[in-house]
Simulated assay, not measured.
Amino acid sequence: MTGHPDRPSGLRRAPKGWAVTEEKAGTLTQCLGIAKQIDPAPVIKIVTKPRGWRKWFKPRLFSTREQEPTFIVSCGFRAEEPVLAIKSAFGGRPFAVHLQRPRVDGYDLVFISRHDWVPELDGIDHVRQMVGVPHQITPDRLAAHAGSRSQYAGPADRVAAVFLGGSNGAYVYDAACHLTIENAVRDLEAAGWKIVISVSRRSSAETLQAALTLRSGNVTVWDRTGDNPYLDFMAAADAFLIAKDSITMPCEALVTGKPVYTLDLTHVPGERLLKFETYHTDLRETLKLTKAFDGDLAPYVYEPLNETARIGTIVAEALADRQQSGPRGVTVSVKRQI
């Protein structure tokens, strides 16, 4: 829908979107992914929490002198109260969408990941399930990077993209984990794959160093110098091997329709591990979208996952309905306990 020839005809004017989020790149990209489906240039509002004397100089998040937003997409609990304040300041007119279970009531639409869903939410009309999280990777964006493949492989080669993250309370990148990564990459190299490896902003210096030791004529590792080649690596890949500490990266790779395998890491027992394992089990066993890595990246077929486009369509249709019928009160509480 970006580019907007496909915008629903019921929208009487070009909607103006605001993306309101806390200071995390992951939550911002979720908001922008959805907002850009409707408005190609949404306004970004970052909710900060300065400490000490800096809190006295905190800038205002918004002003009613700004162009009124038609809709707001938010993520992260620090964004929730500010979104309701924005909505109230503009007379309740902005259509508010939240991308996780909120701690407050007042949103018009709420999307909650399947791994966070609880039965008490079943049947609530303005609350919907989503697979994983939305993001900003689209087939069009990847197509623009298709020419990069020749940097890493020849026409007859197979390219495996290996994406690594960092310790997150559910998994830890320890020496055993680094050895697992090394063995996986060496096995793929021995099987004839060309391999491109990218670390994330969460990756430790030790994980980066462990990846750099794998460099060879067949293995390319981004060393964090220059521009991040993440989109180039995605566009070049014939298959993906993604560490299990990320929820976003598998969702991004599943847009391609290429095989997506997940690499197990050292577990940290607890509720956070349970949530991540629930997510991966759902992708692998229930939805049949991913596979667990066991030494091979064999091809398989699935319907590409594009939750960003699906959610964007739902929001656009709700906006069209809002413009025709006016605001409607949300009466069922969905907030979670703090």
Rank of each mutant, 00 (worst) to 15 (best):
G192Y: 08
N306G: 02
T70G: 14
I46P: 00
D232F: 01
G132D: 10
L84T: 09
L142Y: 03
S198K: 03
D105N: 14
A144C: 09
E182C: 02
V219L: 10
R7M: 15
L11H: 03
Y107G: 00
R101M: 07
K288Y: 06
H267I: 03
P259W: 08
G147V: 02
R128L: 11
D282V: 01
A211R: 08
T331C: 05
L11V: 08
G295Y: 12
V219P: 03
R336Q: 14
F240P: 07
T286F: 04
I124G: 07
P42T: 10
R149P: 00
Y302T: 12
D238W: 09
H280W: 00
S74L: 02
A210M: 07
S150R: 14
I197T: 10
G132H: 06
R141P: 02
L287Q: 15
K288E: 12
M249F: 03
T278H: 02
A190N: 07
V221S: 07
C75G: 08
K288Q: 13
L61V: 11
R322Y: 08
T266W: 07
V118I: 14
A318Q: 04
Y171K: 02
G270Q: 08
F276W: 02
R186E: 10
A253G: 05
H4S: 15
W53H: 02
P94V: 09
Y261G: 06
A176I: 04
Q136L: 04
G123M: 09
D294C: 10
A143L: 12
G295V: 11
A25W: 00
W222Q: 11
T331K: 11
R328P: 01
Y107W: 12
P119K: 12
